[in-house]
């Protein structure tokens, strides 16, 4: 006799909204029985097939390739066809809130308007730019080592999970966001591409580019394919310096200022770092500096902490530095 299939009941609170008829979104509760091989997409299907045929969501390939079925489950970015329901139960228990990737961009239920995502994606020229012979005699070769250097950035499926999980995007609609920046990396570190400098100049403006990353790692967590966008953003930072495209601004001076400060004290001279990074802009920090001073939170030059064995640190900075500004 075959083993009985294990099943569990889950309690869903599902975001519902139709922009043509509803003034406000609302949540509907459903109880669904799931079995161990089912994924979150099966849950969406059950809601549609068993409870309400008007329930809307995007889906296509069912194999984690088309990137259509990104949703949020208990605020966790989820590619519905790739996430086993039993794994989600292990993470959250059997109560789940199902929402679209972005509540403010919703059209109907799980379906959102991804125009902002695609506009930013297209802004970084997400394709190979190189002068190729139209009738080549041999293939345009890339060595295995060079391919490894892409660090899986090429397997992004454009689902938008990282983009809509990014808090910097949430509060600043100009920020390009993790997906398009990871795509920038994908071509900028491809040895065959020739538009690296052009792309670097596109992505290193303050207010919209790589320096607006808040380093929260939400994108790394949200990506269903292991692309790890923040790692790629970090390499774009270093590439900007390596290629001499870093403009002198508060962000680049901030990064470089750490080295200067560590070389002087081992520790950070917090006040000097802000002054060096901001230049004349340091004046806007005076009110908060005054508040901190009153509470004994500002180290003065004469009691600035210094690391023991500072000579070792200086020696290592001299011998191990690999970047210039």
């Amino acid at each position: 006799m075959a083993d009985a299939i294990e099943t569990k009941k889950i309690y869903l609170k599902v975001f519902r909204f139709n922009h043509e008829t509803d003034y406000l979104p609302y949540y509907k509760n459903y109880e669904v029985v799931v079995s161990q091989d089912e994924v979150m997409l099966d849950v969406l299907n059950k809601i549609k097939w068993e409870f309400d045929s008007t329930f809307s969501y995007r889906r296509s390939c069912r194999h984690g390739i088309c990137g259509s079925c990104g949703i949020k489950v208990n605020n966790r970015a989820t590619l519905a066809c790739k996430e086993r329901v039993f794994d989600m139960i292990e993470l959250f228990g059997n109560e789940m809130t199902i929402e679209p990737q972005s509540r403010k961009r919703v059209i109907k239920d799980m379906v959102i308007d991804k125009k902002d995502f695609w506009d930013k994606y297209n802004a970084v020229k997400p394709y190979m730019i190189t002068a190729v012979d139209e009738h080549p005699d041999s293939e345009n070769y890339m060595s295995p080592h060079d391919y490894e250097n892409l660090k899986e950035a090429d397997i992004c499926v454009q689902c938008g999970n990282c983009y809509y999980a990014c808090p910097s995007v949430e509060v600043n609609e100009d920020y390009l966001g993790p997906a398009s920046l990871a795509k920038t990396y994908r071509f900028n570190f491809d040895t065959r591409d020739e538009a690296k400098i052009d792309r670097l100049d596109t992505v290193n403006d303050l207010g919209s580019g790589i320096w607006d990353c808040v380093k929260c790692y939400e994108c790394a967590e949200a990506c269903p394919k292991g692309v790890n966008p923040i790692e790629k953003i970090t390499y774009l930072h270093t590439q900007t310096f390596q290629e001499g495209r870093a403009k002198s601004n508060v962000a680049t001076r901030h990064a470089v200022g750490f080295k200067t400060s560590i070389n002087m004290h081992g520790f950070l001279d917090e006040g000097m770092l802000v002054a060096y990074s901001e230049g004349i802009g340091v004046l806007k920090h005076l009110p908060e500096a005054f508040k901190m001073f009153r509470k004994g939170k500002i180290a003065m030059p004469w009691n600035m902490p210094k690391s023991k064995n500072l000579d070792e640190i200086k020696k290592l900075i001299k011998s191990s530095s690999s970047a210039k500004f």
Partner: peptide, 11 residues
């Protein structure tokens, strides 16, 4: 937002 305090103060 701490890590963007200087370069993206609004964020």
């Amino acid at each position: 937002g701490f890590h963007a305090d200087l370069q993206a103060p609004n964020t």
